Simulated scan of single mutants.
Amino acid sequence: MIFQNAGKRAGAGRRARGHAGKLAATAALAVGLVAGAVPGTASASATGDNSRARVWGPVEGWLPDYSPDIPCPVGAICLYKDETYRYFVLPHCTTYKLYDWNGVGSWYSRQTGGAWGQIQNSAHKPIKWMGPEQNGYFDFSPAYFVVPC
């Protein structure tokens, strides 16, 4: 899955100045991976943690988070909370609201037909574009909405 190379990405933010928050969140994630922290425990409940992350959709209401045994379906965007590989499936062309996304996670766009998704800030301004069959890490701290189309 996407988090398998988290240790390699942890130092990437050092090159750019002014990204101390992202670097701290990424480092905290890497420390959690090394230390074997379990989400929901005291060591994993610090700021920059997505263990309580939730997604609300106007069609489905609260979305369930899926285990890594189920692949991200074609036509959807999947948001991965943390190193547990638990994720949310955003299948509809609508605006999804993010709750308690406070740190680094990842995303995978399995959209078809050339659709591009957006991660948006509180003012509904795009802060990340997600193209078909692309994936990556993202600091979800400033994110409030995801629009898959």
Rank of each mutant, 00 (worst) to 15 (best):
A42H: 05
S122A: 15
K125L: 14
Q4G: 13
V89E: 02
S109A: 09
L90M: 00
F88H: 06
R15L: 10
W107S: 03
T112L: 13
Y96V: 01
R17T: 08
I127G: 04
A10R: 01
T41A: 11
P91F: 01
G75T: 13
Q111R: 15
R9S: 05
A46D: 08
D69R: 14
V31E: 11
A115F: 14
S141A: 13
C149E: 02
N135I: 00
Y87F: 11
A25G: 13
G61E: 15
R110W: 06
P64Q: 10
S109I: 05
D65H: 14
P71M: 06
S106K: 02
G75I: 15
P126G: 10
W56M: 14
F3Q: 01
Q134W: 13
D100W: 06
A115M: 11
D139Y: 03
G21P: 02
Y85D: 04
P39C: 06
G117N: 03
Y99R: 11
V89D: 00
D65G: 10
A27T: 11
I119F: 08
A12V: 06
G57C: 07
G105K: 01
V104A: 04
G131P: 06
G48Y: 02
K81W: 04
V104N: 00
S106E: 03
L23G: 08
I2F: 05
A10G: 00
P148W: 04
D100E: 10
Y87S: 01
V59R: 15
A27L: 15
L33K: 09
E83L: 05
A27R: 10
D82M: 02
L98S: 00
Y96G: 00
T26N: 06
G75M: 13
G113H: 13
L23E: 05
T41F: 13
C78N: 04
G36V: 09
L90F: 04
S67Y: 14
F138C: 06
S67W: 12
A24L: 15
D100P: 01
R9I: 08
S51F: 10
W116N: 10
C93D: 07
T26S: 14
Y144W: 09
C149A: 06
